[in-house]
Design a protein around this nucleic acid. Structure first.
Lengths: 226, 226
DNA sequence: AGCGGTCATATTGTCAACAATATTGGCTAA
DNA sequence: TTAGCCAATATTGTTGACAATATGACCGCT
């Protein structure tokens, strides 16, 4: 974790980042009860900053605390994961619409460039899953910030994406349809480039809906289990 | 603040609630730099729990902290308030749709009953603004929880509503259109009662959009200032 | 007079000891 | 043998003191 990004990076920030990535990467198993002192020794922290970080993480819904009883990583059911995608659908739809209205030409050009590099990675077919997952994350990240809607970006980047990524890591599965997803990305960017917010919203909603159905199918077929 | 609601109500919880309501009610002015020790003496707390609460509040976007520099209540511009309504539009639209699919008949009956009592309060015309504001909050609150979408309800009740209410208090203005809003509420509940999720979503989005336009107009006319 | 640098101060960040409470194991009695 | 209760223990919640840093004033220089 880069201690040098911000000139003043407090221990609490460090604790927050460490715990968040640990939870997302599955190093802290969901449902597992975990003690404060154990966390302290593990991440070389003291309890003060740790507790402050725990408060933040609880507020974001990544873990739950019961007074005097300890803290455990939140465990979300398959149906709850589907609910997350429903939320993403409407919120990212809005983000796409506002991005179409507000992104600069430069940002749109950059976005198209990243799609090109994503395509190249997929064609080279090495480490597909990883690159596709990161590429997908990168794409949605840019749309969210491009919406110029501070709170919207904050909610997407700070809340939803971390929970979704948590499952990406645990399932260690990308969408499983990289080419198709890339095509959908391209059409969304096209709509944004044409400043057609309504179309961008529609396409984004359909894109996320497709991803949700894809995962739902896999769960029902028993390919993946939560 | 009721210390008896939860059997174990920690100081940090107390601090969190106190500060949140103080911010929402405008007792802590936006932009105002405020010291920790001042907050401690004001709410009779010690710095440990206070800092934990500050972390939570920062995570929720109600205040910002700069290391070694202090904490100040977030100040949101008029345009940012409008952005909040855009988010509400899509999220509460989703909530209404899912509520139509999932609320129990009993819950729907209760919802209709609350609308009746709201109507009565408005007709009696005493303390219109207050009751209408509370009634409106109550209505949207029930829809959010009725969606059975945990994360959605959490984001609406825990994040957005507090920020919106913050402005309600500061402007000390309800929507200014109680009768009309009540009629819109009724039509939404009708759609929910008929289990017509699509219609409920449409009506809810239009309802919030109307509220947004109403506030936007008032701001442009200079009736209210932020 | 205006500007830059330095230092004192006050405030925040951090830490370690103390108090309060939930859990767990054992014990007793039915 | 099992159910319920009680106490010991370990963990969390809280507190006050210590260290580090940003702010603001003062002074000297240009």
């Amino acid at each position: 974790m880069s201690e040098l990004l911000s000139p003043t990076y407090t221990r609490a920030d460090e604790a927050f980042d460490c715990l968040q990535t640990a939870i997302v990467k599955g190093e802290l198993a969901p449902g597992e009860k975990i003690g404060e002192l154990e966390l302290c020794s593990r991440f070389d922290l003291t309890r003060g900053p740790l507790r402050e970080a725990l408060g933040r993480l609880e507020s974001r819904g990544l873990l739950v605390r019961r007074p005097h009883a300890g803290v455990k990583v939140v465990s979300v059911s398959a149906s709850e994961l589907m609910e997350l995608y429903r939320i993403r659908e409407v919120m990212e739809g809005l983000a796409a619409r506002q991005a179409a209205e507000r992104m600069t030409d430069q940002e749109i050009a950059d976005l198209q460039a990243t799609l090109d590099s994503h395509e190249q990675m997929i064609d080279e077919a090495q480490g597909q899953a990883y690159y596709q997952a990161e590429g997908d994350y990168d794409f949605h990240h840019r749309i969210a910030t491009g919406s110029r809607n501070t709170k919207l970006a904050q909610m997407l980047l700070g809340d939803l994406y971390y929970m979704v990524r948590m499952y990406r890591y645990r399932l260690s599965t990308s969408t499983g349809r990289p080419k198709r997803a890339l095509g959908e990305h391209r059409r969304i960017v096209e709509a944004i480039a044409q400043r057609d917010g309504e179309l961008a919203e529609f396409l984004m909603k359909r894109h996320i809906n497709a991803a949700r159905q894809n995962i739902e199918k896999k769960i029902q077929e028993g390919e993946i289990t939560i």
